[in-house]
Nucleic acid binder design. Structure first.
Lengths: 154, 154
DNA sequence: TTAGCTTTTAACAATAATTGTTAACTAATA
DNA sequence: TATTAGTTAACAATTATTGTTAAAAGCTAA
């Protein structure tokens, strides 16, 4: 987790200007464990910077990703989710009812690709996605909204 | 893996007519380990049934999914991939260069969610996605095309 | 402080995957 | 064979995301 000063350095060092938008998106993401989508970040950012555009949020997210400050996750919830936690190895719990994503810090020592039977496939990373129902959705009457509103309702 | 006769029964038993389109899509998927997208299945289906439409392929895939005959996978390759292997526990190797998906049959005994620290999250399934480079892409000069052409080129 | 260059914004257009819609046609089954 | 379900074509629509353009705003180096 970087400080604002370090981030500023990083922007400068990579030939980028230190703008309110870049800092804002980064600040909203920093230490954020809710895995927000671009849209959600946009809404939050607007509270601080009323004129920020969704376009800029997307741009900044992509930059932060290029800089290794966050990663985008494709968890089948419709939109990419952004995770600032790029250092610690962790996995994800995805609620199939409401789309909420939680981190799971657990060591799964056996999770490494076998040496044989890969036919030359070179494995770089392993991600585990646990799917299920979060506490709120379990106790609710199904009013939480679904993970992909339009796609699943039909 | 069902036989054509069993599939026919299944369609009839669920009040569906046994059409050439339904059988065709199912046949193309049956025992198929290439995790094709709807588009790919459409192209293959057209060789047998020149008049089949992409719309119908999507419809049939969704039906087969509802019937538990296949599952759709969201592996970050842009389009959903369809897997007829719904019985045997297995995981996936995804080539980040060309988008190819391979099955990985390996037992990862430790991969089950911990009992504690879940805060009421009820885990239903665990999927492991290994990302890396397939043999062909490793030995190629990068002419294989990327996993998400438009999205990654920019 | 200003000039210059980068960013942002707005306002669109575009793309890709997928689903919805309608009407006409075709085919399965009772 | 009549009925009903399924298919097709031909679109429109949706959602997430990126591209584009021109104008305005804002960093920053000098």
């Amino acid at each position: 987790m970087k400080t604002a000063v370090e981030l500023t350095q990083l922007f400068r060092n990579t030939g980028r200007k230190v703008t309110a938008q870049r800092l804002c998106v980064w600040r909203l993401l920093e230490g954020n464990t809710s895995h927000p989508s671009a849209e959600v970040l946009f809404e939050e950012a607007r509270r601080e910077l009323e004129t920020i555009s969704l376009r800029t949020v997307y741009q900044v997210l992509r930059e932060l990703e290029e800089l290794g400050e966050c990663m985008s996750l494709d968890l089948g919830t419709g939109a990419s989710r952004f995770d600032p936690n790029v250092d610690a190895a962790h996995h994800h719990l995805v609620c199939t009812a409401c789309g909420k994503v939680r981190d799971l810090y657990a060591d799964f020592p056996s999770v490494e690709a076998p040496k044989t039977g890969l036919d030359g496939f070179q494995v770089g990373s392993a991600e585990i996605v646990f799917r299920g129902t979060c506490a709120e959705c379990k106790s609710s009457t199904g009013l939480n909204g679904s993970i992909r509103p339009k796609a699943l309702v039909s």
